[in-house]
Amino acid sequence: MSERAESAMGGDDADLVRKHLSGDPDAFRLLYEKYGDKVFASAYRIVGEYHAAADLVQEIFVKIHGELRAFKFESKFSTWLFRVTVNHALNRASEVVRHARIHEKIVRDGRGDPGGTREGRPVDDEVQTALLELSPKLRSVISLRYLEGLSYEEIAEILEISIGTVKSRLFLAHETLRPLLKNVTLEPEP
């Protein structure tokens, strides 16, 4: 991350948005540097496929580049960005997951990669495999809570649901995940 993005980390996203809108050519890249990995992680957790997540992030940043003029500064930029991310990922999840299953099966069958759409896998396969058993809506709540570390209030604002619904979706997600994660062995913390 560049020094400029680093200093923006603790600063004001709205300021970067204003600079972008006023024509600063670096401002949008700085927003990407600040949020690109977080948006990617959320997209990856929801769609469950590395390259598909990268495509979604590309689409999301191109989309928000065009839509930032409509940003009303009434909510935090990060809230707005995650809302766009989750909605976009949810819209695409079923299509991407279905495709990922075909590729998963081909790779599992030891027949290689039919379309060159998959390269390597993250080390936390067991968790990701378990998450893919959740519905996309439950997956997005888990992702925002435990990967982004957002509060129930922030998740409710992003997903435009009540805090009670956030908690009930989390509860259901945990019930589903428990048998799937019970055999996961964590390495001792350093």
Binding site: D37, F61, P122, F171, L181, L186
Partner: peptide
């Protein structure tokens, strides 16, 4: 069960965006 799930989820590695993504965007 929820406590144990939270412990696992909090330790799960989060993938980072591929380096070529910004040039693509």
């Amino acid at each position: 069960g929820i406590r144990e799930n939270e412990r696992i989820l909090s330790r799960a590695r989060v993938p980072t965006a591929p380096p070529e993504l910004w040039p693509r965007i």
